[in-house]
Amino acid sequence: MNRPKPEPVHVIKSRREAALSWLTGGVPYIQYLGIQFDRRGDELTAVLPFDDKLIGNPMLPALHGGVTAAFLEVTAIIELAWSTLWEDMEAGRIDPAKLAESQFPALPKTIDFTVDYLRTGLPRDAYARARVNRFGRRYASVHVEAWQDNRERPFALGSVHFLMPPPPGAPAE
């Protein structure tokens, strides 16, 4: 039996990194907050490096509640968009080398968003991971958790519902 030779690891990595940076680099607000994404296989961890402009209450000091909300929402949207992009990329339906010239993908739209503030966001780096609980044709439900020093002690949880963009070529809603 003649199996195709597996692709060299650096080719796979550079393709996946290119797709991820295309997706996250195109959204101005993600750049403004300074959010980065660590990738291990298809798993993403969002990283929010601490910056003075993220402070809400300078007396404590603590991260602004709105920053925490934005960080969770960004993580949820990117997780959802990434899982679609990942499937298309790995199935060979899109060519990451040509992403730079192509139209930025229609992003899922937030329908509603609930944040549970468990403890004060400290003036240091924060991390978040999202899990897609339901991925439908029209709706998706995503859970997201953010933590700082200790993964077992999240400082905020979020639950987000999204309206999925229509597939390319379909009439808009």
């Binding site: 509640g65 944040v115 503030y117 004060t120």
Partner: peptide, 9 residues
Amino acid sequence: ATLDLRIDY
């Protein structure tokens, strides 16, 4: 400080 926030868009 915020305990819980729910937003409908």
